[in-house]
């Protein structure tokens, strides 16, 4: 049962495609778990359709239709073809479909089909983190895997943090969260999530990039992740 949903700001900015991509990935992931928010996004999109149809029309040039049909006749695909998706081999996508963790489409693309192939960084006994590259916006995106019963170090957020639970559940002083939940923590809120005993907890996490690291958690996480990333990049190059 999903109890935590994106608020009207996230849903509206998503429906109008005005969210930073990393946050849009989180909303998109939640929508695959939540029929109610998906219905809201459909309603919001209807508002967009309604407003579009009532705009003051802007004349297109006279030869526009002919030019378009010439492209159609020449068998034109869109000028902006699907490119990134094509890089994920089909077998990876099928493999992901068979794996026991349900991954929403946007996440499936970002992890190239499977969580196993990610570069995991172990942070203590209970937590491993795999950074994801969404875009170079001011957000850090990662998959967190908290071992069943494991406890994360207490940490404070320097910026807004979105967590979407992909598997398992965790709890902190404020409540307990289960698969599909969309949990937002604001800057300055501290918490110490603990995964429930029965299952590893896998989360998609999007962090507003902190201006400068402060506090135990970032001292632990930030330099390490950045260091590993740099090393990976070097070894690729």
């Amino acid at each position: 049962m999903i109890s935590y949903h994106p608020d009207s700001r996230y849903l509206t900015d998503f429906a109008t495609a005005n969210l930073p991509l990393a946050e849009a990935v989180c909303v998109s992931a939640h929508l695959e778990f939540c029929g109610k928010c998906r219905a809201h996004v459909q309603q919001l999109t209807d508002v967009g359709g309604h407003m579009l149809a009532r705009l003051q029309p802007e004349a297109v040039s006279e030869d526009s239709f002919a030019a378009l049909m010439a492209r159609v006749s020449a068998g034109a695909q869109e000028q902006f073809p699907v490119t990134v998706a094509a890089q994920v081999p089909q077998e990876d996508v099928e493999e992901a479909a068979q794996s026991h963790v349900f991954l929403p489409r946007a996440v499936r693309r970002l992890v190239s089909g499977s969580l196993d192939k990610l570069r995991w960084v172990q942070l203590g006994k209970a937590l491993r983190v795999a950074p994801l590259q969404v875009s170079d916006e001011s957000r850090e995106t990662a998959i967190y895997d908290i071992r069943a019963g494991g406890r994360m170090p207490e940490h404070e957020h320097r910026g807004e943090e979105i967590t979407v639970l992909l598997q398992g559940s965790f709890s902190d002083a404020d409540g307990s969260y289960s698969c599909g939940d969309f949990v937002v923590r604001h800057a300055g809120e501290a918490h110490q999530p603990t995964a429930t005993m029965d299952k590893d907890c896998i989360c998609l996490v999007c962090l507003e990039r902190p201006v400068r690291p402060r506090g135990l958690f970032y001292r632990l996480l930030e330099p390490l992740v950045n260091y590993r990333l740099q090393r990976m990049n070097r070894s690729v190059a």
């Binding site: 990134v84 998706a85 489409r105 946007a106 970002l110 590259q133």
Partner: peptide, 21 residues
């Protein structure tokens, strides 16, 4: 902003196991 994901992977008609309410 560079990116590693297609727009249509984010804004899509999900074939979700969860039906639309």
């Amino acid at each position: 902003a560079g990116r590693t994901i297609d727009i249509e992977d984010i804004w899509h008609e999900a074939d979700s196991p969860e039906p639309v309410v």
